[in-house]
Structure formats: C-alpha cells, structure tokens
Write a protein that binds this DNA or RNA. Structure first.
Length: 557
RNA sequence: GCGCCCGUAGCUCAGUUGGAUAGAGCGUUGGUCUACGAAACCAAAGGUCGCAGGUUCGAAUCCUGCCGGGCGCGCCA
C-alpha cells in the first residue's frame, strides 16, 4: 500500500524532471529490520539517468515524500542509508490502516480488477486417451488448474479445455492392444502388437468390455485378426477403450480437483473434413505448397528452422495439420489469447505452432505456450523412467493413494513449473507428515480453533489505538498480509503459480510466532478484538491461497 | 553438432526481472507443552551460488567462453 504511494510520488518527480529512461521502481522488505520496514534502491538506479549522486537524489526524494500527505500519514521516518537506499519506518497507526483496508475487502481480498479482462482459452493435459495419467501429467494438471483459478481470480475470463488426441496411429495401436487382450481372455491366441501397449491396465479394459459385450466381438477378431486396423473389428475396441479411459481420466482428475469447461475431440476435425479445409485455405493463400508429393507449411516465414509437413506423401495428414484445424477453431470462437501448457518434451514443436497461429490470426502473440518441465521419480535411491507403452509408470492414482490430494497438489506446484521436479516417492510415502502443506493447513486449523473457542461477546474489530499493534509479531504479520494483492497479480501475470505456494508458507511462518506470542482469548478486550480481526484476515488469505492451489483448508486436522 | 530448461547448504528447492550480511523445508544438534491445537515455537551447525572472464556504484541474477545434467532436433504424436 505504501509502495503505491511512494511510486506515485516517484513517478511525478521523474515526469517533472523529464528523466528518460526511468528505472523500474523497486520496493522491498529488507532482510534486516534495522533497515526499516521497507526500502527502495531507486535513487541509485536513477543516478545514471539523472547524472547526479545517489545520496543527493535521495535527499530530494526524501523531502518530497515528507511533503506528501498520504505518505506522511503512513511513514514515521524516511532514512537515507548506505550508498543511497531510502529506508522507511512505518508509523504505528499505519499497521492499523493497512490491516483495516484489507479487512474491508472481505472474502474478495486480493482479487484483481482488470480494466480490460481478456477472454483466455487455457488448454492443458490433452493426452492420448490410451492409458492412465502418470505423475508427469499430474504436474501439468495441478499447474494448469491452479493457473486457471489464479487467472480468474486476477480478473481474466478463462475457459479451460482438454484436447482429446483420439485419432491416429497411436490410438489404432491402442485399439489393437485392447482387442488382443479381449481375444486372449477367451483363450484365442492373438498377440499384442510389438509396438502396442503392454500394460496390465489394457487387460482390465478388455475385461470390462468383455463384461459389456460378452463374446459378441470375438468371431470377427478370429476371422480378420488385428491387421486391418481401420476395420470395424478393431475400431470398436479403439472407440470403446478410448471412452473407458476418458471416463476414468475424468473421474480421476475430478478427485484431483481438476475439471474442464470443454473436452474437445480430435476425431471430428478429420471426419468432418475440417483438417482438409484448413489445409486448402493455406494452399490457396500460398502459405502452404506441394513438394515431393507432400504438402508443406511455410513456417520458416515465422522463424521456424524448416518448413513442416501438413500432408504426408501417403496422403495422411500429420498431427500438426490437425492441430492447425483445432487452433483455427479456437480462434474462431473469439478468444483474445490462447494459452497452451505443454510438457518440455514438446518444446521443439513451439516455433511451428506459433507460426501456424500467426498465419491463422494474421498477427503474432495470440498463442502463448507455457512449457512445464518434466518430473523424474526417485525410488529406493534410483531414478525410474516412465513409459506408457510398456505400462511402466507411477500413476496419478498411485500418487493419490500414497500421499493424498492435498499433499500431491501442493508438492507438484510448489516448485517453479520451469524447473524439473524430483519426486522422491519414498519420502512422499513415509514422511508425508513433513510435507509443507500441513504447515500451512495447520495455521488455518489453529485460527479455526480460536474462532471456535472465542467467547460469543468477543467481536473482531481493529481498534483505532495503534498501541494495540505494537509487538513485532503483529507488525510483521500485517506487512506480510499487505503483500498479498501484489503477489497475486505478479504470480498471475508471470504464470508463476509456485509463488502462491511460497507465499502461503511465508504467511504461515508469520502467523505461527504471532500465535505463540500474542494470545487472543483472555487478553484485554480491545487487544483481543484487534487480534481476532487479524486472525480472521489471515484465515481468509490462507484459505484463498489454498483454494487457488486446489488444496483443502481444514478447520480441524 | 544445433535449440530449449537447468547447475544455489548433506537432500529437495526459493531468491520478488541488478540491491544491503544469499533464504526455506527436510535431515543433524540442543532448548520450549498447568492458558486459543507442540502437525508449532526458539536456537545452533551447514555455502568458492558449476568454473573463468566481462558489463557497473553493486551480479546468484545480465553478456561471452568452457565443464556437467535433463529434454528436444521425423512425411511420430
């Protein structure tokens, strides 16, 4: 709050003096309380542009701030320190003012108000529906869902979508694998194709289908085998298998707290000719061309290393071609911004997709691709590699079984999405009590306890007497709470979901000492009332953080 | 070979787009329960921020070059 006021004073000063370029305004909490409650290195950054000594600039800014009524109302002392830092010490009643401003906002504390909210389509997870979700998918699901909640809360309009890759060779392979297991369950000797799916879950799906249809699908398999992949026999298993996997996936994601506004199937893009139409338009516009019996898109026009094939020489469209039709559909639905969350193993695909969207939209920047780094697993001191095809993986279901939704979600988003994540399964299983999520939830439960035990006549309310906020525990807690709106907006704009998890831990770390040292119930009524108000506010903010991460905020643990 | 993400405490990782003495959790060592929940608090130990240069008042952060790791580099998805 003080940050905005100081920034305003600085901006008008810079404008008046016509300094250009003006350095970015930085306002921070010094690590050492001796340096005041807040500090800014702005004058040192300004020195070069202004061509004056930092401390001399600091003198002038100091007197401007002291002349500003809003700043003077909050600041007790402005000090010049070191090579040109400006340190601020808050007045005692500033803490009351900061806390009551936040309290007034009620449950919407921290919510963003955008002057021009954008319509954003957020696409994530989007896997082949041919096997269970593993922990890598779980990371993107946890991250994407938290980003969804964060962007909405920050004032954007978000629609979420799961693109179902239910078409193509991988799915044919899956269908044949299910068909083979189905036949095997009747003792018919049909082998799972070499490049097929070997996991035990395939047999489970086959068993379910057998329950549904009995032996009615057996004869055609016996007669025609698996060779004719596009034929009726295998198609049935591919489609029903796909449905079963999607049902399981959707139920599992829901248990994980992740839901989507839309599930968008790839197959109709092909069967309704929309892929072909998109390619024809690109050809007509000269953006695609034929060569070597294939059709290529001029992605090099937009920075790709080489042009990319849309239609193979065998006349089959590539996955890329379908993706173009899909993104054309997204654009036609009128979104201002498309955000795709992809695994790091797809990063090589970025330039061509951005090029394609630039062709379609006629302008750059409509597509933003967020790359999530991979998850590697440690178990018994060894790294486990995952393979859907071999059926070797740690699934989301197993992770939920081992550590539960809350710990899993918190764990998967507490680290930057840009960083590979090492998941130690032994640690997750055996020491789940040590997971930082409990530290945050415990703070919430403690507050709930206070509210339960408080006598009914005790009303939360911030007294005007600043002496009620004199302990450092209360001051530090208020300062941390005051950061919340800024942290949220920055996290949203930079897609840094992990900042929310980090902030929640920091807030809990300010609350616990406060709890230890500042009794609420039984204190002098005015003090108790003020502290109760702080508790209420802290609870709201913690609950909001946890909600944004998809983690429960329990009243008891 | 080229491109992307990285290299920070024993381990897993933060570090607010260049700021003051580099932080947290786990692990280790010691202390704190007759008042709102000890899943907590307090304290200690632990670091050439991969290495070497450069940019400047100031670098974990920006630039260059090495070393090391992950992931990509298809008319697969």
């Amino acid at each position: 709050m003080l940050a905005e006021i100081v920034e305003r004073v600085v901006r008008s000063w810079v404008t008046e003096e016509q300094w250009d370029p003006a350095p970015e305004f930085v306002f921070e909490r010094p690590a050492d309380l001796a340096h005041g409650d807040y500090a800014t290195p702005f004058c040192m950054q300004l020195a070069k542009t202004a061509r004056r000594a930092p401390r001399q600039l600091a003198e002038e800014l100091k007197s401007r701030l002291e002349a500003d009524p809003e700043a003077a109302a909050l600041v007790d002392a402005v000090e010049i320190a070191g090579p040109g830092f400006l340190n601020f010490r808050l007045r005692s009643d500033a803490f009351v003012k900061m806390a009551s401003d936040l309290l007034e906002q009620g449950d919407s504390v921290g919510a963003g108000r955008r002057e021009e909210p954008r319509n954003i389509l957020l696409e994530y997870v989007s896997v082949n529906p041919n096997g269970p979700l593993h922990v890598g998918h779980a990371r993107y699901a946890a991250y994407g869902n938290a980003l969804d909640r964060l962007l909405r809360f920050s004032g954007e309009r978000v629609t979420t979508e799961f693109y179902i890759n239910d078409y193509g060779r991988q799915m044919d392979m899956f269908g044949r694998s299910v068909a083979a297991r189905y036949a095997q369950s009747f003792g018919v000797d049909l082998a799972v194709p070499e490049e097929g799916y070997q996991g035990a879950y395939v047999a489970d799906i086959a068993a379910q289908i057998r329950q549904e249809v009995g032996d009615r699908r057996l004869e055609e398999l016996r007669e025609r085998g698996l060779e004719d992949a596009s034929g009726e026999a295998v198609r049935f298993f591919r489609e029903r298998g796909c449905q079963i996997v999607l049902e399981q996936m959707s139920a599992e994601l829901e248990r994980f707290g992740v839901t989507f506004d839309n599930w968008f199937s790839e197959t109709p893009l092909h069967t309704e000719g929309r892929v072909r139409d998109a390619i024809d338009r690109l050809l007509a516009a000269g953006q695609a061309y034929e060569q070597d019996e294939a059709v290529w898109l001029r992605t090099t026009d937009y920075g790709d290393d080489k042009d990319r094939v849309l239609i193979r020489s065998n006349e089959q469209p590539t996955y890329f071609a379908a993706d173009i039709a899909y993104h054309e559909d997204k654009l036609q639905r009128g979104y201002d911004l498309l955000i795709n969350i992809w695994g790091a193993d797809h990063h090589g695909y970025i330039p061509r997709m951005k090029a394609a969207v630039e062709f379609l939209a006629g302008e750059p920047g409509r597509l933003e691709i967020v790359i999530g780094q991979l998850v590697s697993l440690q178990e018994a001191g060894e790294t486990r590699q995952m393979s859907t095809r071999r059926g070797e993986m740690v699934t989301l279901a197993e992770l939920l079984e081992a550590i539960g939704k809350d710990a899993a979600r918190f764990f998967l988003v507490m680290r930057s999405h840009d960083q590979t994540l090492d998941l130690d399964l032994d640690l997750a299983r055996s020491q789940s009590q040590e997971n930082p999520v409990y530290y945050v939830q415990y703070a919430h439960a403690r507050i709930a306890g206070i509210l339960r035990n408080a006598p009914p006549e005790l009303e939360p309310g911030l007294a005007s007497d600043p002496s009620l906020f004199l302990t450092s525990f209360e001051r530090e807690l208020v300062k941390k709470l005051d950061e919340f709106p800024h942290v949220l907006m920055e996290a949203a704009d930079r897609r840094h979901v992990h900042r929310i998890a980090g902030y929640a831990q920091e807030l809990a770390a300010e609350f616990h000492p406060f709890y230890k040292n500042c009794r609420v119930i039984g204190s002098d009524p005015a003090v108790a009332s003020s502290r109760l108000a702080l508790c209420l506010l802290t609870r709201r903010v913690i609950a909001r953080c946890l909600d944004l991460l998809g983690v429960d905020a329990p009243d008891r643990m």
